[in-house]
Nucleic acid binder design. Sequence first.
DNA 1: TTGTAGGCGTTATCAG
DNA 2: CTGATAACGCCTACAA
Lengths: 351, 351
Amino acid sequence: MTIKEIAKLANVSLGTVDRVIHKRGKVSKKTEEKILAIIEKVNYQPNIYARGLVLNKSYTIVALVPSFIEGEYWEMPSKGIKMAEKNLSQFGVNLNILYFDQNSVPSFNEKVDELLKLKPDGVILAPVINFEAVKLTKKLESGKIPFSLIDSNIPNSKALSFIGQDAFQSGKLAAKLLCSEINSQGTISIISIKNNENHNKTLQQRIEGFKDYIYNSNFIANITLIENNIHLGTANWEENLMQACTPTNNTVGIFVPSSMIHHVAKCIEANFDTMSNIKLVGNDLIANNVKYLKKGVINYLIGQRPENQGYLALESFYKHLVLGKSVPQKKYLPLDIITQENLMYYNDDVV
Amino acid sequence: MTIKEIAKLANVSLGTVDRVIHKRGKVSKKTEEKILAIIEKVNYQPNIYARGLVLNKSYTIVALVPSFIEGEYWEMPSKGIKMAEKNLSQFGVNLNILYFDQNSVPSFNEKVDELLKLKPDGVILAPVINFEAVKLTKKLESGKIPFSLIDSNIPNSKALSFIGQDAFQSGKLAAKLLCSEINSQGTISIISIKNNENHNKTLQQRIEGFKDYIYNSNFIANITLIENNIHLGTANWEENLMQACTPTNNTVGIFVPSSMIHHVAKCIEANFDTMSNIKLVGNDLIANNVKYLKKGVINYLIGQRPENQGYLALESFYKHLVLGKSVPQKKYLPLDIITQENLMYYNDDVV
DNA sequence: TTGTAGGCGTTATCAG
DNA sequence: CTGATAACGCCTACAA
């Protein structure tokens, strides 16, 4: 059903129908009602090709995400965003990725300036440097530029959508898997490994979830928890890590609430004679982690579909700007449990 | 870059450029080469809106899948196909779902006739009744109607794409999970439950994968396997099932290689005083299974994203027919491990 | 308040 | 062999 046909049905011209459809006024109430009724009745759907052709709009979306070196976590969301661009560029969605250094506020602000100069129609933001990210969202809000958040949320922000994972639940899941592997008894070591200075809410929530599971289980009496913090790049981080890995009493399991578990796995592997029965659970399917999962040093990895997060973030703008559809305000991606046995089908998994 | 601009660059009219692009001949070699070079250089991409508008083609895709009652497995692929239609109908992809009775060859053939009468531009087929399905694919091939297979494959068929799961690997994964739960010792019962008469390759492959894992593990000596077959709807299937569930010797785990594990779970729950420590692993997130997973009667479910399978099947025709893109010939969806802890984010998971 | 005409980029047809 | 032109459905400016 076209506008022309509706016009004929209503005995008006197609200009009038168009004005009704777009609520541009200047139509008498009577004809408006008549046209609306017809539109309703025939369930008129605009032809998106014709609309796309005449509007021929193109949208600039800028993504502001942490820089990375090959194999690091942030490569994956970037990859997903780029894949989405490949599919969506033909619909007028143009992408511009800006990378900032997670450890440098000036670098972030520099990129923010660059971003604003591009006058984007939408922004994808990874709020890793939380405080600065919040400032940016305020600016975007006042500039009426819609933004989507990936990875972690900024509560109370007016984001078009948040796409990420439920970190607390991720921690609970990790605890469940580790407990099942260690038969629910012994000492578990939680090792937080970070490569930046920022307060990492995700890490914290995973740890809380992990503890929550154990505290509320009925074998809590059989389990001891130890916590360690390692800061990559500091003077003696490797020694500290080695110490954290070394079995105290009867360490039977290690949980690393980040993608950095491969550092622990490397440690364990180097001392496999004494440590081979320590079970490892961590997050994220980055190449280094996968390597140790395949070797059996890591027992479970929990995935959060980072490529998908990136893909969906750009797609949310496509839906919002191009199709004019509504998009879910919050999207938690599934927490995938990855083992040697199902690893192979989790690789090319971007929609 | 538009055809018009290319025409100007090449000092020809846009008609000529169009003939080159569509290889319709009647262009001198010299001008053709010149135009091709320009197209290459400027990386010309046709405007899909304009193309869609003028072609204004619509495609009829017919899906032929098993009928179901609410909550059964086949509801999920159907749901996925319908969701895809919702997104793709505006691009001219029209869907027609035909349901056949898995236990009735005549019903299948009746639907095949109906299908052929619709003169579809593409067919989505669930080859559950294998022999008849093969016959249909032959007809489609000779009629040059492309088809996609979902759920299980027909090797050597000329399908546009197959979208399903690796059933063998699914069985291996089930074994791994069950072994981890039962601490790798005791008697495991494999209970095949079917609701139709067809030879079910998927079931068979899952069982083979399951055995393969155990035979190749180093705790094979500690595990005993028992196999049972239950045929839903036969005279005394409930008694048989009850018998199969009853612990012999030291049954510690049960594997049901289909979506029918809720029948076993019901059994176990009814005798929870004596059977509460039997671990259950099965397939598919249907409502009945989820219920027992939440209760803790079922320990793990393995998902195969059936909605996604349906969605991707229809989308493969969109990509093929509308966008003219190539689609992967074979797509195995990930084998998701579902527990109480990650269940909640696996529900609205269709792309 | 309403109707009309031109144009978006592509395809396909028809006349040269 | 090549160029000109109508049409697809929608939007917008402008005329009535």
